[in-house]
Simulated assay, not measured.
Amino acid sequence: MPAGMHDENGQHRPSCWVVTDGSAGMENQCIGLAEALGLDFTVKRIATTRPWRWLPPQLWLDPLKRLSPQGDLLTPPWPDVLITCGRQAIPMSLAIKKANGPDTFTIHIQTPNCDAARFDLVIIPEHDRLRGPNVLVSIGSLGRITPKILQEAASRFAPEVADLPRPLVTVLVGGSNRCYDMNENVMRDLAAKLTSLQKETGASFLVTTSRRTGAENEAILRGALASLPHRLWTGEGENPYFGYLALADALIVTGDSVNMVCEACAAGKPVYIFELPGGNRKFNYFHSSLQQKGYTRPFHGHLEEWHTPPLQETRRIAAKVARILADRQQGR
């Protein structure tokens, strides 16, 4: 919606752009915030050209002209609110701010690789060290999961798992990244623990993998599940991810993804972390913090019973952002 439009009651309806390079983990955080704020938003997936994409934001010349037509171009009218995430979107946010000044309120999610004061607001996870007067700190990452989304997904996918015995244990499997290594030995260990858990509890498994899981690891997992009651989604057909979160009695999540762990915690069920070899200061702090707050426990092959409220950081952060936007509007 173009900037400056009004609804049927004559109230100003802020326009909003969500700008990322299209990575799901980044885009979902921005969309989750926009949805929680109740904004009418347009998603812009950008592609930047070489050599600019490799340079720090302050070295870009005319950033808006460095966009590839393979992605979305960014042209006026500029939005009232701009939400960005990721390195490639930073120069675009700075350029739009320069072009439109205070008429565009810029929000960047995750620690930027430039001075945070160049944004109106920066939202970071608590395991990052950045702090400042325009910085909001969340527990982990933001996301799109709400009680309504989970309820709708549960209704849609319940018939597909109705014949599976309880407890239903959802298993979210990621893969190797710069910090963690998911190799064949690790996957065999997870497979063995799931097999043992099924014998102990009679559980069924709702399993999803990611592109990072790898064909060899997926084959090991598929072989182990073959003799167990389960559903396995590896990318074919409708994505049951939200449904599996909603229908689970408990969740097991590999520890390589902050987003995946936070989405599991948003379901308000016991969440067990299957630890992978590796890690770093930020990941270690993140996992330690969630365990101390009672949201997660390590997975050692058994289920325990405990209760925790759903992690609702997106709603909490959005409420703070809404107050800031309201104060800004009143101050005009």
Rank of each mutant, 00 (worst) to 15 (best):
L206R: 03
R118L: 12
I149M: 04
S138Q: 02
I123L: 07
I139Q: 04
S155R: 15
N183Q: 10
K148D: 11
T170E: 05
V135E: 12
D128E: 15
R131T: 15
A215T: 13
N217D: 06
L206G: 09
R131P: 10
L172T: 07
A203L: 05
C179T: 09
L168H: 11
C114A: 06
Y180P: 09
R144E: 11
S155M: 06
P159E: 00
R129P: 05
G175T: 07
L150N: 15
G143W: 03
R211N: 05
V171E: 15
K193H: 08
P159Q: 00
R118V: 02
D120P: 11
E216T: 15
H127G: 04
A162N: 00
L168S: 08
P165Y: 14
D163V: 00
G214W: 00
T111V: 15
L206P: 06
D181M: 07
A215W: 03
R118F: 00
A154H: 10
A116L: 02
L130G: 08
Q151P: 08
S155C: 06
D120Q: 02
L172N: 06
V173W: 13
S204H: 01
I145T: 08
D115H: 10
E216I: 14
V173K: 10
R211F: 01
A191M: 08
S138F: 00
Q198A: 08
D120L: 03
L168P: 15
T195H: 09
G214Q: 03
D163F: 02
V135I: 12
G214A: 00
M182P: 15
T209Y: 07
R188C: 01
D115R: 06
I139W: 01
T209Q: 06
N113R: 08
S141P: 04
L164W: 00
A116T: 09
R188D: 08
R212K: 14
T213L: 01
A215L: 06
N185T: 02
F205H: 13
